[in-house]
């Protein structure tokens, strides 16, 4: 009982056939082969699958694919420019060691992007709240917070 849904994925309108019981994460990873969003737990407790839907960070592992119809979805794959130029957040994570094993990174950056899109001048606490649902086992979050803070500064000044 496949159904067709249409939505905007990383600024591109797409139509795709889905099974109604898929999650958005399943569609992204298994069908569209966009594997930036990770499945760290599958039940919304780690944040590795975070993507942005209509401006909000959500756990794509719990997001019914049928709800994506007509919406605007941004994933980590849609962040850098076509010429490969990194988004300031991506650049900052590399420069400030916000990345270690990298498994939380996609989700972490998407949570941070959702924050900065709404609040370009966040406090440290705002940053920590925005990524509190993104578990990281490597970094102790210190350099992740730093990466986001510095990216915010850079984005403000350009």
């Amino acid at each position: 009982m496949k159904r067709e849904i249409a939505f905007t994925l990383n600024n591109e309108e797409i139509a795709v056939e889905v099974e109604p019981n898929w999650t958005l994460l399943y569609l992204l990873r298994e069908v569209l082969e966009m594997t930036g969003a990770k499945e760290g737990c599958g039940v919304g407790e780690c944040g590795a699958c975070t993507v942005i839907v209509d401006g909000n960070a959500i756990s794509s592992c719990l997001y019914p694919v049928m709800e994506v119809e007509g919406k605007n979805v941004t994933t980590i794959e849609g962040l850098s420019k076509e010429d490969g130029t990194l988004h300031p957040l991506q650049q900052s994570f590399i420069e400030n060691n916000g990345v270690q094993c990298g498994y939380c990174t996609s989700g972490m950056i998407m949570s941070a992007k959702a924050l900065l899109d709404k609040n370009p001048d966040p406090t440290e606490n705002d940053i920590r709240v925005s990524i509190a649902g993104n578990i990281c086992r490597c970094t102790g979050y210190v350099q992740i917070v730093e990466s986001i803070r510095k990216a915010a500064e850079k984005m403000k000044n350009t």
Binding site: G44, G47, T50, N56, A57, I58, S59, L62, Y63, S111, A114, V129, S130, A132, G133, N134
Partner: peptide, 9 residues
């Protein structure tokens, strides 16, 4: 409640 991701939906 939970996390931003949970609160958003």
């Amino acid at each position: 409640i939970g996390s931003v991701q949970v609160r958003n939906v």
